[in-house]
């Protein structure tokens, strides 16, 4: 599968370095390695959701209980979670570390992903959610740590967009 194992390892290591102990997730192609890493890590509580909005509740509960968490979702999952982001996280000043696979952007071949791709950044901007767009050359550890640091200092959600450039390795021609 051309989803980058190396990038997934770097992201997972960054989350561990941030003392993330709870991860909520819904399966999505770009996130499969990350979810598997969380599943195989006995020190991680992985909560597999039925729908992404539950993840806002899980992370809010974890935060109030003093535990750092992260949410793994596709950008369409972000769309599904908008009301709780507003009426739980923003309303109650709850930090969220949202790692969002950025489907439907440059290079996307699947037509069904494209509408979500078009609205992702404008939506995050409208919500006032500070956002990193993470690319392959970025210092993943530092960017994720800095995102979490701001979330905790501001008691506010932050987003890290996982781009195709980072997550997807084009098959090498044989």
């Amino acid at each position: 599968m051309p989803v980058s194992v190396d990038a997934s390892r770097r992201i997972y290591a960054a989350l561990k370095a941030c003392d993330v102990r709870v991860i909520s997730a819904l399966p999505e192609t770009w996130l499969v390695h990350l979810i598997r890493m969380a599943e195989e890590d006995p020190a991680m509580t992985l909560v597999r959701l039925a729908k992404e909005e539950e993840g806002v509740g899980i992370s809010a509960g974890a935060h109030l209980a003093g535990v750092s968490s992260a949410m793994l979702m596709q950008n369409h999952g972000l769309l599904a979670a908008v009301n709780p982001i507003v009426s739980l996280a923003l309303l109650y000043k709850i930090p969220l570390l949202m790692l969002i696979s950025y489907r439907g952007h440059m290079g996307e071949r699947d037509p069904w992903q494209t509408q979500g791709g078009l609205v992702t950044e404008p939506l995050l901007s409208a919500l006032g959610v500070p956002t990193w767009t993470l690319r392959a050359d970025d210092d993943v550890t530092r960017r994720i740590r800095d995102a979490q640091t701001l979330a905790h200092a501001a008691l506010h959600p932050v987003a890290v967009l996982l781009t195709r450039d980072l997550m997807w390795e084009e098959a090498t021609p044989s």
Partner: peptide
């Protein structure tokens, strides 16, 4: 006691998150 004054439906998700962490 925490009263979730909006975000209808998520009190149980919050309770699950707390229960797993505590």
């Amino acid at each position: 006691f925490f009263y979730l004054e909006h975000a209808m439906g998520l009190a149980s998700s919050m309770g699950l998150g707390i229960a797993l962490c505590k």
